[in-house]
Simulated scan of single mutants.
Amino acid sequence: MRVYYGYVGFLAEFLASRNIKPGEPVAVILKDNTTLRGILMPRPGIFSTQQILVIKLENGYNIGIKVDKILDIQPLEYRTTRKLAVTARRSTRKEETLPHVTLISTGGTIASKVDYETGAVTPALTAEEITEWIPELGEIAVVSAKELMNIFSEDMEPRYWELIAESVYREMSSGVSGVVVAHGTDTMTYTASALAFAILEKPVPVVLVGSQRSSDRPSTDAVFNLLSAFLVAAKAPFAESVITMHATTSDPLVLVLRGVKARKMHTSRRDAFQPINDKPIACVDPIKREIKITGRIIEHRDSSKIPVLKNKFDNKVVLLKTYPGLQEEIVDFLVDRGFHGIVI
């Protein structure tokens, strides 16, 4: 079966025959004589059993249309004005005048799209697509994008922390001004803490960033968070492992939280991350390109420091919640199974 940008079967053959590609404007004529105009989107669910066409409407919302309701799909004039304008703006800037920041993508909602047949969110965006999707990043730094892995954060494991730490360490050693790690939010605090201990003598910050809404939704917080994360990586005076996420449910500011002093407190709110027994290190206004220090700085930015990698993690350690009547047999079981440590 042919697969064409995630589409299969009839839709794949039809779109390919007319050379219509994702990102191009189309007019979808329905059998009830309704015409919908928008941008063709790729399908993340490439093995879908139903034929669903996904387009982004002019109001910013994405919709899925069943093929049995479609009479025709017509390509519209492809406008490249924005792309050319972005290219021209970048070409006028000398790279040596901007800091160099590396984006390492590990997956999560910030690198995902919605499957409009199932409603599920699936990893789909590469690191390069993220940077192309937000051309304003090029006004903040010279961006280098790398895709280390593409997983949901609930699948994160200590062995992956080792890979992330090594990748961040290599970028720091190469002389970049900062590193941004795109990460799922559910276990982001664990990874931020792991990186805080895995890389000593950090010369520049490592900034973990995610989003509560997938990148193709009009209500996404990904753009605001990413712009803020790049500002922190490029210009912040500290060199710590931090988390950069929304300060409130709207879009005024972003908080910079110390990785070892943060926790996700809500499943869907934009301001889900809060400091624990600490104050935010800084507040960021990505529109004004401002960083305001609000807390204490423990590790200062210093390009003369040489980072030290300590990225070995023991996965035979368990976190045990204590409660009245906790039975000693539980601890005995863990010891007998060869666990090296128990955190109660």
Rank of each mutant, 00 (worst) to 15 (best):
I130V: 15
E132T: 11
E132A: 07
I134Y: 09
I134A: 01
E136N: 15
L137A: 11
L137S: 11
L137M: 13
G138F: 15
G138W: 14
G138I: 15
E139G: 15
I140D: 06
V143G: 11
V143E: 12
L148W: 00
L148D: 09
M149R: 06
F152W: 00
E154I: 06
D155A: 03
M156W: 01
M156N: 07
E157S: 09
R159F: 12
R159N: 13
W161Y: 14
A165T: 11
A165F: 09
E166S: 02
R170K: 14
E171M: 03
S173D: 01
S173N: 02
V176E: 13
S177E: 10
V180P: 09
V181N: 08
G184N: 02
M188Y: 03
M188E: 07
Y190Q: 14
S193T: 15
A194R: 07
A194T: 12
I199R: 05
L200N: 14
L200V: 10
K202C: 02
P203T: 02
V204N: 06
V206F: 03
V207A: 10
L208V: 09
L208S: 05
L208E: 11
G210R: 04
Q212G: 08
S214I: 03
S215P: 00
P218E: 10
T220E: 08
D221W: 05
L227G: 06
S228N: 05
A229N: 10
A233Y: 06
K235W: 09
A239W: 11
V242F: 08
V242A: 14
A247T: 13
A247C: 10
T249A: 14
D251K: 13
